[in-house]
Design a protein around this nucleic acid. Structure first.
Length: 555
RNA sequence: GCACUCGUAGCUCAGCUGGAUAGAGCACUUGCUUGCGGAGCAAGAGGUCGUGCGUUCGAAUCGCGCCGAGUGUACCA
């Protein structure tokens, strides 16, 4: 398609001495393999009849050896039919490296220490991991990062709860709690609930005091006192739990920046910028004054009590990531609710450090809603816990997939695909039944499609040879196979994996249609057809791999 | 109040840098069913693309107004 675009642009330039931006579309099969509407666009500036322009361009295009035929349709669409050779050639085209040797930081997931991961984290972690894969495939030098709170009020509440449960500052008793990372995380979470309740009751002052004490563990490097030992041990439990969870869902781990690390850097920067006059003091707090004409709010960076806010910690993490990786570009994925807030942080960051301008992109995801929330909550308890979602899917998969060794990859295929198939931005509707439904647009459906294709290949004695010609019945399938590389490019460019999901599903449908009508094994065209099946299976596998989904040989 | 996001088939969503009869899955109706894995295929029904103006040869797509849903709007993250 790329070559056709260039061809048309060249022709337009030669014929009319104009630089037109040509787009090549994939038209309906009845029209051809490629189409362009340049003639319609040029009609006005040239003051000519669009069909006349189209005829002139078509005449030149017909001389090209890649092109089997050109027709003009409707008001002046140019429809192009490719030669068999060109069509086959497209299948072998590799996606372009859109991020070649770019040094990229991608921050996502961002769970708080001392808390469990919820469905929002699950969604964002999976989506982030896939987007990161796209950057990698695009040739980027990629650094995955994550950022979260290991200090702050939520930690104080939690530690207060631990004290109650342990019956005092008794780090020795932690050994008796649990040794499994997930059970430990659950225990921490129970302690948090206790503390949060007490904070609303009569323990507020005590917990506020504890909050300062915890900051002190970092400032004074206190690892010795009993309470500090509880803190450092359970903090590590949290990190181990993150690691265990990422492993469970088979995603790459990230470099984690805890707030205790980013806050000092952020504070230093903020105080310097206060001196520079980029920040102002207001009611005892340090604020960044928003620009109303740009719809930026005023936000507090250091509170009246001298504590850094999230804003300052976010500045800190940007500075640390810049220091550690010297990124060319930084992508950040957070929930929708942080959109306006982050605009201010970005504006402040660029104000403090102008060279950051244009190097940061904020992407946002919507919230996960459960289609069958009632059913789940009654059975599973806390619906929103990420581990419970995986467990619920596991139960459903167990009922469908007989081979136990296959189940886990189907579970992950189901959940990853379910999240990847939505365009990023809006709230998503998570329907457990649809997720594992083997009919329709789901991960397991595509995994099955792959296993089925492999099964055909293993039954044939023919080995793969590159197809040399295309029969009429092959054409639709071959066309679809050829769309792979440009689909990946689109997904890569927009960091939008849903394009790949849609494509793979359409490809599987196209193949099923083909397979329904054309016998492969035992047919006189077996050798030829087996090669198409092999190309299909390979593309399916490659696409699923981009989504972080395994393509099993059998199911 | 102001800002941002969203509103496409009964449900869940694609399509949105303007183009040819608006697509898919689920659900629904009918047919294929002794099968190379039918977890499939074929056909059907279902849409004033929230709404009204505007720009354009052409609008689901761009602009403005309105209606509806959600989020954010200084010491939380």
């Amino acid at each position: 398609m790329e070559s056709i675009r260039v061809k048309v642009e060249t022709i337009v330039h030669e014929l009319f001495d104009m630089a037109a931006e040509v787009t090549i579309e994939r038209p309906d099969a009845q029209f051809g393999d490629a189409a362009t509407n340049v003639a319609l666009q040029l009609a006005k500036p040239l003051g000519k009849n669009p069909r006349e322009i189209a005829e002139a361009i078509a005449g030149r295009l017909r001389q090209s050896e890649d092109i089997g035929g050109v027709t003009i349709a409707g008001p002046g669409f140019i429809n192009i039919r490719l030669t068999d050779y060109a069509l086959i050639h497209q299948i072998y085209r590799r996606p372009q490296h859109l991020y070649d040797s770019k040094n990229i930081v991608f921050e996502y997931s961002c769970p708080n220490a001392f808390k469990e991961l919820h469905t929002g984290h699950l969604y964002q972690t999976i989506y982030g991991d896939i987007a990161a894969r796209l950057l990698l495939v695009g040739g980027a030098k990629l650094h995955r990062t994550s950022f979260g709170g290991d200090v702050g009020l939520h930690v104080a509440k939690c530690l207060w709860g631990m004290r109650q449960v342990l019956g005092g500052d008794e780090p020795g008793k932690l050994d008796d709690i649990a040794h499994d990372a997930f059970e430990r995380a659950r225990w921490i979470s129970e302690c948090y609930v206790r503390g949060a309740g007490a904070y609303e009751g009569n323990a507020k002052a005590e917990i506020d005091e504890l909050n300062k004490t915890i900051y002190g563990f970092h400032d004074k490097s206190d690892h010795a006192s009993s309470l500090a030992q509880i803190y450092w041990t359970t903090r590590q439990w949290s990190f181990d739990y993150f690691e265990a969870f990422y492993k469970l869902i088979d995603v790459e781990p990230m470099r984690y920046y805890p707030e205790s690390e980013t806050a000092p850097t952020g504070l230093k920067v903020v105080r310097e910028q206060l001196q520079q006059g980029k920040l102002k003091e207001s009611d005892g707090a340090v604020v960044y004054e928003g620009d109303e004409s740009k719809h930026l709010h005023t936000r507090v960076f250091i509170t009246g009590q001298g504590l850094p806010t999230y804003e300052t910690k976010d500045i800190g993490v940007i500075w640390l990531e810049k220091r550690d990786y010297d990124f060319d570009h930084r992508y950040l994925l957070t929930g929708n609710d942080q959109k306006e807030y982050m605009r201010v942080v970005f504006a402040a960051a660029m104000d403090f450090r102008p060279e950051l301008a244009g190097t940061m992109t904020h992407m946002t995801n919507g919230t996960v809603r459960f289609a069958d929330g009632k059913k789940m909550s009654s059975r599973m308890g806390n619906v929103s816990r990420a581990a419970d979602v995986i467990e619920a899917i596991r139960e459903k998969v167990a009922a469908i997939v007989a081979d136990e060794s296959m189940r886990e990859s189907v579970v992950l295929g189901a959940v990853k695909y379910a999240f990847a198939k939505y365009r990023l931005g809006g709230d998503i509707n998570f329907d457990l039944d649809e997720t594992v439904n083997l009919q329709g647009n789901s991960g397991p459906y595509l995994q099955y499609a792959h296993a089925r294709a492999r099964s055909i290949l293993s039954k044939s004695g023919e080995s793969f040879v590159k197809p040399q010609e295309i029969y009429d019945e092959d054409r639709m399938l071959v066309r679809k196979l050829g769309e792979y590389s440009e689909t990946v490019e689109t997904a890569m460019h927009e960091l939008a994996p849903h394009h790949i999901c849609n494509y793979l599903f359409e490809l599987a449908q196209e193949f099923n249609r083909y397979y329904e009508k054309n016998r492969v094994i035992g047919d006189e065209k077996e050798a030829h057809r087996i090669s198409l099946v092999a190309l299909y299976a390979d593309i399916l596998k490659a696409g699923l791999m981009l989504l972080g989904i395994q393509a099993p040989e059998k199911m």
